[in-house]
Simulated assay, not measured.
Amino acid sequence: MEHRLANTWWMTVNEKKFIETTLLSDLRIDGRRPFDYRRLTIKFGRDDGSSEVQLGQTHVMAFVTSQLVQPYRDRPNEGTVSIYIEFSPMADPSFEAGRPGESAVELGRIIDRGLRESRAVDMESLCVIAGKLVWAIRIDLHILDNAGNLVDAANIAALTALSTFRRPECTLGGEDGQEVIIHPPEVKCFTF
């Protein structure tokens, strides 16, 4: 993204003229009018916690997983949510394979902040044993095609994957009542 933005300052005369003509004709490059939305398509995966979003030509896949971890000391009753983003070099020529670049880190922060500030995930509901075990939720976002509006597409993908995610049921057992038993998805636990 940063590389792409940097290149917008160095336009040829023909590129500038094309943009001016397009703006004056009330059309965008993709044929939409100035206030037309991109077409949104959401597909839910076979597995819980997965989705595929296409916003215009931008394409993002999301997967949500969880694991039991120790909570942070300053938040012993809250679980965690982490965002991981993979930019495929095939999605955009400016993306590089390997370690996440500044663009991926920035996009991850935007998605993370949006989820936290909107309270889309109840962090206290992720607590299993206060101060000992909480659920750590991981959201993996794979950018498959970048044709603009990546923040919205990634946010929608993260939220739709979260909406279908079901953390595993668990109960406490053992002699001291502090042993966590994780049940498979097909087993439903009821407490009365």
Rank of each mutant, 00 (worst) to 15 (best):
E52S: 15
E52W: 10
E52P: 03
V53I: 12
G56F: 08
H59F: 14
M61C: 13
A62W: 01
F63H: 13
T65A: 12
L68Q: 05
D74G: 03
E78V: 03
E78S: 11
V81T: 09
S82R: 14
I83N: 01
E86Y: 07
P89K: 07
P89H: 05
S94A: 14
E96Y: 06
G98S: 07
P100C: 02
E102A: 11
A104Y: 02
R109K: 13
R109C: 09
I111V: 15
R113W: 07
G114E: 09
E117R: 11
E124D: 08
C127R: 08
V128Y: 03
A130T: 15
A130Y: 06
K132M: 09
W135T: 00
D140H: 11
H142N: 10
I143V: 15
D145V: 04
A147N: 14
A147T: 04
A147L: 06
G148S: 10
D152R: 08
A153G: 03
A154G: 06
A158Q: 02
A158K: 03
L159T: 07
T160F: 12
F165V: 10
R167A: 06
C170V: 07
T171F: 06
G174R: 05
V180F: 01
V180P: 00
V180G: 01
I182D: 03
I182A: 05
V187E: 12
